[in-house]
Every structure is written in structure tokens, then in C-alpha cells.
Design a protein around this nucleic acid. Structure first.
Length: 333
DNA sequence: CTACTCACAGTCTACGCTGA
DNA sequence: TCAGCGTAGACTGTGAGTAG
């Protein structure tokens, strides 16, 4: 290709190579970040030529050969949980730290998954991070025509790495805390029962209750939202309320706390104890001193970003990577 | 009109050659 | 033997051109 200064097209590596008096391959190596065999004299000539032409690599063309587009898809059901904001801010920050950008794909429903599969997704991505439980690993691989899919929704698959919080420890610690305070009866406010993560969480609570001799007297299904916690409060906190109410999201616990403020003078329980889940940053605020179950989000994000950056290190059949959870005591317990 | 081939964009790299 | 280098081809998707 002849580079004509009169045209508006930006200079290519061929123009740089011509000006430097080397082949395109040498120009490419000289400008590469990786160590490549090029004499220092030619490297300097190429760098000078690139600078004088104002050469910038064409990322689209680069992606043809490198197969990387520096784009990571984050597949979610929706974003209205407070815990999503906590996590995604860290995640996007760390993904950007490895030179990539994030696109959010909101699935919303199973029907939308079918739609995505029919029409395809108009993006090539280096990896897809699947938080949505509407889509399993094979489905997401088809959606993006990519094998680099990282499952974060509890749906296991032998070909795609899994990173997931290990919730048993934190749940067990929280229930032990309740038992040590003579809690005998419990209520459980859950999220969508169709979610495999939620099913495992509920099982874990049930096992812990049984282990510590706590009787689960009432379960209410919410949707992780503050509003559903608000609604659950009426069903749970009547005259015969259980000794403790465990919620599978902090937002639901916040809804209950706001309905039952009179039961928590100074944030401390007078009729029943309240436990949340996720350890949202908001629970550090005085207004919501909710005892919660959390995990090291930085560690969780680091595992995710590692699996984006080093796809080869997660061979087929690699066991799930787990991040331990722990009980975080505050006033409401 | 359909079916097919080819060129094109820009970059990277496998492979093979040269010369010290 | 090996560093340094050049050539050819791969990569993806599209539109133009050609044959039947």
C-alpha cells in the first residue's frame, strides 16, 4: 500500500517500515511490547519513523491476528442489587487495569437468552463473565462464539472455569453466632429459588440451623431487593416473630430494618436478631448496622481477572475456584 | 439470477535464509 | 549455531467481479 500524504487515511505499519527502510515484520517487531529479535539500530529507526508519521496501531487490524479485542463481556440478569454496584465497580476497575474494557450484557429473562442465541451478539470479546443464571456455559460460548467463558453463577461446566464464593463457612459462623445468643427459632428471607446459587445458599442455611438446633419456622421468598425485604417484614415480624431473621441479601435486611426500626433501638435487637448477606459497604454506615456475611471482594475480583488474563492456566475440568466467606458482626445481631 | 472466486483492509508470525 | 531479517500467509467479513 502506498502512503500518500495528501490522503486522510492514517499511516499504517507499512508506511513506517518504508520510511525506516525495513520490512513490515521488522517494523512490527520493533514496535512490539514483547521482546523480539531486532537490532537496536533498526529499532530506533522504526521508532523514529513511527513518531514522525504519528503512527498509531490499528486496533481492529491488530485484533485479526492477536484474536484479542481488549473487550470483556459481563453478562448479568439485571443490575438493581446494591451488591452488584459494590462488586462491579471493583471488577471494572481491575479489568481496566489489565488494559481491557467492559461491556455489560443485560439478559433479563430466559426469553432474552433465546433471542441472543438467534440473533447472535455483535461483539467479539476476549472473555465473557457470566453472573446471570439464565444462561449456562455452553449457551454463553455459543452466544459469543468464544471458549473463554468464566462462570460466576454457580452453573458448573467442565470446560469453563468457575469462580464462586464458598458460602458455607460464613453462613455457619452467622448461625453459630445466633445459637450462642440462645436463638431457637429462625426465619429465612430468600431470593429467587430458581437460582442455583440461591438454592445452595438455602441448603447451607438449613444444614447450619439443623446443626445448631435452630428451628426454621418461616421462609419468605423475596428477590434480593430492598422492597422485597420491606414486604417480608410484615410476614415475619408479627407478634410471634422468630428469634432471628436471616436474609440472603443485605438489601432485604435493610428493608426489614426500616420497617422494624422500633425493634432495634440504637441499632440493637430487642425482639429478634437480624442477619444480612453480602456485607455491602452501606452496612458500615450508622443507619444500617446490619450483621452480615461477606467475602473478600478484592480476592474474588482478582481470581476473575486472573482467569481473564491467563486463560491457559484453567484447563478443562479445573476445580471451581472458591473465595471463603465470613460472618461480619454488627449491631443487629 | 445464483454461486462462486478474489481482493481488500492492517497486523502478526511461522518459517526459512543469511552472515557473523 | 544463532541473532537478525524478509517473505508469505493467516486472520474476518464484505463487496465487486465473473462464470454459468
Amino acid at each position: 500500500m502506498n502512503h500518500d500524504n495528501s490522503r486522510s487515511a492514517p499511516p499504517t505499519i507499512a508506511d513506517v517500515a518504508r520510511l525506516a527502510g525495513v520490512s513490515r515484520a521488522v517494523a512490527s517487531r520493533a514496535l512490539s511490547n514483547e521482546p523480539r529479535p531486532v537490532s537496536s539500530e533498526k529499532r530506533e529507526r522504526v521508532i523514529a519513523a513511527a513518531a514522525s508519521l504519528g503512527y498509531k496501531p490499528n486496533l481492529l487490524a491488530q485484533s485479526l491476528t492477536t484474536k484479542t479485542v481488549n473487550l470483556v463481556a459481563v453478562v448479568v440478569n439485571h443490575i438493581h442489587d446494591l451488591s452488584d454496584l459494590d462488586l462491579f465497580d471493583r471488577l471494572i476497575d481491575q479489568v481496566q487495569m489489565i488494559g481491557k474494557q467492559v461491556i455489560l450484557i443485560r439478559i433479563g429473562s430466559v426469553a432474552r437468552v433465546e433471542e441472543f442465541l438467534r440473533n447472535g451478539v455483535a461483539y467479539h470479546v476476549d472473555a465473557a463473565l457470566v453472573f446471570s443464571d439464565f444462561a449456562d456455559a455452553p449457551t454463553v460460548r455459543r452466544m459469543f462464539r468464544s471458549d473463554h467463558v468464566i462462570m460466576l453463577n454457580g452453573l458448573h461446566d467442565e470446560f469453563s472455569p468457575v469462580v464462586i464464593p464458598d458460602e458455607n463457612a460464613g453462613i455457619s459462623e452467622a448461625v453459630a453466632d445466633a445459637a450462642s445468643k440462645t436463638v431457637k427459632t429462625a426465619g429465612l428471607v430468600t431470593g429467587r429459588a430458581s437460582s442455583p446459587v440461591e438454592q445452595a445458599r438455602i441448603r447451607s442455611f438449613q444444614e447450619a440451623f439443623s446443626r445448631y438446633g435452630i428451628n426454621l419456622v418461616r421462609s419468605v421468598q423475596g428477590d434480593y431487593s430492598y422492597e422485597s425485604g420491606h414486604a417480608a417484614a410484615n410476614a415475619l415480624a408479627g407478634v410471634d416473630c422468630p428469634d432471628a431473621v436471616f436474609c440472603t441479601s443485605d438489601a432485604m435486611a435493610m428493608g426489614i430494618l426500616d420497617v422494624c426500626r422500633a425493634d432495634f433501638p440504637g441499632g440493637r435487637p430487642s425482639r429478634f436478631r437480624l442477619y444480612g448477606f453480602d456485607n455491602l459497604s452501606l452496612t458500615d454506615f450508622d443507619a444500617y448496622p446490619i450483621s452480615s456475611i461477606g467475602y473478600d471482594k478484592s480476592l474474588y475480583v482478582r481470581h476473575i481477572v486472573d482467569s481473564i488474563a491467563n486463560p491457559g492456566s484453567f484447563s478443562s475440568g479445573h476445580p471451581p475456584i472458591t473465595v471463603p466467606t465470613q460472618f461480619v458482626p454488627r449491631l443487629t445481631a
